[in-house]
């Protein structure tokens, strides 16, 4: 009887030990997965991509970029499509959270307009005050 009780305690201890280890590994995997899909990475990528496209463009050009991935992240974070990408002065600002965003400057001295057409970001590059 005593032996059985001791055996039962050992099984319980081992089970708890294994559960704690599994929980630990799961938490680590969730952390790594969430970091991989984090807003910061996407804000960085898209701000730079859009700025470099603008720098490469000539006046009169209209460029479309597929923003499906970015919009999925924005939707998850409760950010509306229109708030994700904006142009302030010579800076492209991409924001995927309410806390802020990331900006990257372009050196082109043209008028630039951005707006969404479904999942595509339409970038219009025009001569100044055209």
């Amino acid at each position: 009887m005593i032996k059985n009780k001791k055996g039962g305690t050992e099984v319980l201890e081992t089970t708890i030990f294994i559960i704690l280890n599994v929980v630990f590994v799961a938490l680590l995997l969730i952390f790594v997965y969430n970091s991989k899909n984090g807003a910061i990475v996407y804000e960085d990528i898209y701000a730079k991509q859009i700025a470099l496209i603008i720098d490469n463009a000539e006046p009169g050009m209209v460029i479309g970029i597929n923003m499906e991935t970015l919009l999925e992240k924005a939707e998850k974070n409760g950010i509306s499509k229109e708030k994700t990408v904006s142009i302030k002065g010579n800076e492209v600002i991409v924001s995927l959270s309410e806390n802020g965003g990331r900006g990257f400057s372009f050196f082109s001295d043209y008028d630039v307009e951005v707006n969404f057409v479904e999942n595509f970001l339409e970038i219009k590059v025009k001569e100044k005050n055209e």
Binding site: G100, G101, R102, G103
Partner: peptide
């Protein structure tokens, strides 16, 4: 040498 500009509460 341009880096990303981290903005808070835009």
């Amino acid at each position: 040498n341009q880096g990303i500009n981290k903005l808070s509460n835009i």
